[in-house]
Design a protein around this nucleic acid. Sequence first.
DNA 1: TAGATTGTTAATCGATTAACAATC
DNA 2: TAGATTGTTAATCGATTAACAATC
Lengths: 225, 225
Amino acid sequence: MRQVYEIMSSNTVPSAVIRRMPRYYRYLGDLLSRGITRISSADLSRRMNVTASQIRQDLNHFGGFGQQGYGYHVETLYNEIGHILGLDQEYRVIIIGAGNLGQAVAKYTNFNKRGYKVMALFDSDPALAGTIVGGNPVYHVDTLPEYLSEHPTDIAVLSIPKVGANEVAEVLIDNGIQAIWNFASLDLQIDPGKVVVENVHLSDSLRVLTYRLKQLREAEKGTAE
Amino acid sequence: MRQVYEIMSSNTVPSAVIRRMPRYYRYLGDLLSRGITRISSADLSRRMNVTASQIRQDLNHFGGFGQQGYGYHVETLYNEIGHILGLDQEYRVIIIGAGNLGQAVAKYTNFNKRGYKVMALFDSDPALAGTIVGGNPVYHVDTLPEYLSEHPTDIAVLSIPKVGANEVAEVLIDNGIQAIWNFASLDLQIDPGKVVVENVHLSDSLRVLTYRLKQLREAEKGTAE
DNA sequence: TAGATTGTTAATCGATTAACAATC
DNA sequence: TAGATTGTTAATCGATTAACAATC
């Protein structure tokens, strides 16, 4: 068993590998809740529909967590991946845009995900300022700099229309926000060295689904002839 | 200018290419709304932060839409990509799970995206059945088979907790649904030949953001020392 | 110990980028 | 026409898979 901790802090892990880590985390959490204590890469590969080789390669970007002849201890691996992803800390979250999506994310993030704590919402609509959503206050978006100067915040959720999204992002970054979970359907123009952005482009996702549906129907028409 | 329509109906376009098409569509729509009529792959590559080579390669999976010495006509290319993605048709949508996320998606999909028409929502909570959300009726989830037998539907949005998601998916597929937009944080166990699934794993996305934030902070600590 | 399974190297595969002849 | 830019082939790069010695 190899434990190379320098590798963990290096920045060289391919993005494709990182994107797969939460999926491993989900499957391991599921195994754990079902009382399964050990798993081999071969067994996990069957459940996840990936190759055992990929699982072992992926994990070894971060260290050797398994044991020859045994496999992986589910709980240990689950906790290790949690630690790698930074899920053993708590993150303070604010939500910009208290519309339907913002409110849904507020409630979802607050209740469903341990480790994330929604602190406040912000909106440009003066009618929303002063209201309470899911136990959290809604403030006017103009008060963002003031709020951030007083309340250290880890993650900002951007659930506003694309018009004005870049301006809001700039305010967030100028006031110390380092992570943006972006639901606005545009690519934010930001300096990648100072802040990390994760995009959730719902319309892109829906359009990929639409393309695939079209392909499926055309394939069916082909075989039916 | 080459127009190979057989290629369009073949199934061999790499998934990575397909995932990039909605992004091209967004940028072209933006150019179009700003009155820009022509664009070269070099110019577009600068705006999108990709290589011009990739743009030309990607587009040529579907046909030759450009013209040597000129570039691409923005409106033509926009419409071609829209057609490739199937956005020139209308899709009837139902939403399973009328919680916060389901309601947000209902309103978002209905109002923001031409081409998609939300018809109804379904929920397992009897208290929600009979209510109206964003102009659409909410029915009890048990009435799904009956509804689908009477109302042909293209896309089902799955915005329910992961417990029970597979069972609902099975009902959907048994009653003719061919496309599922899955917001439940599990991988549906379905036959890939009969139905297409697009996953929106919000918790995975948030965890990738968290990992990157952690990396950013560690890198900062490193340079500060 | 013998069997099982890892960690890791080597081979393969696929995707991206570079280059340039074709051509508008 | 000359210049610009595509479509496409070839070269490079990176990611995935296979194989197997190491080892629990």
